[in-house]
Amino acid sequence: MKLAYYPGCSGHGTSKEYESSTRAVCRALGLEFAEIEDWSCCGSTPAHAMDTVLSGALAARNFKQIALTGAEGVVTPCPSCLANLKLARHRMQDAAFKARVDALLDSPTVENAEALPETYSVLQIILEQIGPEAIRARVTRPLEGVKIATYYGCLMSRPADVMQFDDPENPTAMDKIMEALGAEVVDFPLKTECCGAAMGVARQDVTGSLSGRILATARSFGADAVVTACPLCHMNLDLRQGQAERQMRLKFRLPVFYYTQLMGLAFGLPDETLKLDKLAVDPAPFLQLVARRRKARIDAAAEAARAAMEKAESEEGAAS
């Protein structure tokens, strides 16, 4: 199936590093997507908070743009775009709803609602089309000896009947990828707990306490870093980590990566594609930890090899 690529607005602003690393990782894995011409905003939370038909129409304009690429489906890295596009298609299966959406557009979408493009997350495509084994095979610099908390947020697999991906209570897609990269995944209980979403602008007390709880729990389970697949979650956990620290009166200093950045690191992709410098919480201590663990392993292996050689030599000497 030919798939189009929908980057989402934040890819051009606050989540440039996600956009760039996603493209790099997909290229490295041989995943190619058709670019959508002149895509527009999906409407995000504000649109469906105000009106479902308006939200549907903002998504549906993109369905028409996607059709121009000749693709049957579309992938997006952003869970919020994913949810909006998926939900719009889901609701447009109802003819009355589709008619109201079409009435807001310059020209209506395709007559057959089933022919509207289905949306997938990049995460789902990587997991289902590439798989952990192929990812493991591509790793040149494993993330050895580090513990990762995988944080999925609330939108990736909910509502389950629409999203049709992963376990809504205990998703494991990123766990499998992180394990394939050589990292240890902690049994993180707040995988799908909400981070405060778009409330950060108007109510930092809400995002601060919710994100603070997530970060504190990740710390208590011994995580060295958190990974996420969502620009909004990332903003709340990384860029707003200071606010969360003030709210909780705790220091976290917990680096928060996009999962694609860690994949890129393990694949040895160039720094300029991963854009680790865009992260608010300094990732350097984490990277140094990986390097120290790697060195320790190599040293130990070398020591073991030397000892084995000496033992063999001394046995040879004793025999002769």
Partner: peptide, 8 residues
């Protein structure tokens, strides 16, 4: 609604 383990 949910049981969430914590590490003490």
């Amino acid at each position: 609604s949910a049981i969430q383990p914590i590490r003490r």
